[in-house]
């Protein structure tokens, strides 16, 4: 997925024959920090008495090239090598687990495999789809002093019948060259989602803002974003609404052959 990001962004200047060369299978290690705040309320008759909650995660994430599929899409395995609760220092339930992001080289995520193993109490991977734009930002072709818009749509399906699809539209601007061969990029966008969970209607709307820094040597060196959204679950018993705010950052710490 990270390689997809490089690929698309690089399209602006690379000769065509070079773009057709596939990327080497490197394992990319990132330090991940994520902080989130959640505020929950009930509407339409649903009684909810729940105080605000927070989630803080710190750890190491590795991206590895996964299988290449017949339709030309490529899998990237995102593995939570070590992950601790930032508040307690205890290992988090996601530690040791992994998902696979399957995407075309355009950056369009087609499928997130293994999400059922990240979902639910003690893991909460079902709300961490923010990691998709963090690790797989769909960067449009950008030239100097240009802005460009990208649209992307990705599924967040835990199991069949329990999921939603996120539509994200973002405007990108090329930032300064922060060092020789190292470029900054900024983006801001809007997102919405729609889906269902065993008959419960799922919807969300929100905003995302992020910054990327990359280098010629290491690819995506840093990715940071703030994503805020309102998630609503609507069922016969009323509507459960949660305001979610995520601040996440991934910093490249090394690349190695698998």
């Amino acid at each position: 997925m990270m390689t997809t990001w490089l690929w698309v962004w690089a399209c602006a200047t690379l000769p065509q024959q070079r773009l057709q060369q596939p990327l080497a299978p490197l394992d990319l290690g990132y330090d991940l920090t994520l902080e989130a705040q959640f505020s929950t309320r009930g509407e339409d008759g649903l009684q909810v008495d729940l105080g605000p909650e927070t989630l803080a995660l710190q750890g190491r994430v590795t991206l590895s090239q996964g299988p290449r599929y017949r339709d030309g899409s490529l899998g990237t395995v995102l593995r939570f090598d070590t992950l601790v609760d930032g508040a307690t220092g205890e290992p988090h339930g996601l530690a040791g687990r992994a998902i696979e992001l399957r995407a075309f080289e355009s950056g369009e995520v087609l499928e997130v495999r293994g999400l059922e193993h990240l979902a639910g109490a003690g893991r909460h991977g079902d709300v961490l789809d923010v990691l998709i734009p963090l690790f797989s930002p769909k960067v449009p072709e950008l030239g100097r002093q240009e802005e460009a818009v990208s649209t992307t749509s990705y599924p967040v399906t835990v199991v069949e019948g329990r999921g939603h699809r996120v539509d994200l539209v973002a405007r990108w601007t090329l930032g300064p060259e922060v060092a020789r061969g190292i470029q900054a990029v900024h983006y801001e966008g809007q997102l919405k989602c729609k889906g269902s969970d065993l008959g419960i209607r799922v919807s969300c709307a929100g905003a995302v803002e992020g910054d990327l820094v990359g280098s010629r040597q290491d690819g995506l060196a840093r990715s940071a974003l703030r994503l805020s959204r309102t998630v609503a679950l609507q069922g016969p018993g009323g509507t459960l609404v949660q305001e979610q705010v995520f601040d996440a950052e991934a910093v490249l710490v090394g690349a190695s052959s698998p």
Binding site: T3, L6, W9, A10, A12, T13, L14, R18, Q21, P22, L23, A24, P25, L26, S64, Q65, G66, P67, R68, G75, V77, A98, I99, E100, R113, G114, H117, L142, G143, R144, E177, G181, Q183, G214, R216, Q217, G219, P258
Partner: peptide, 25 residues
């Protein structure tokens, strides 16, 4: 001019197999 160029290492031919699987049974 964009400076985003693939490094020689990143541009090497890819090995399609073996692919690291998701280790769920």
């Amino acid at each position: 001019m964009m400076l985003w160029l693939l490094t020689p290492a990143l541009a090497a031919p890819v090995e399609l197999d073996p692919a690291p699987p998701l280790l769920y049974l």
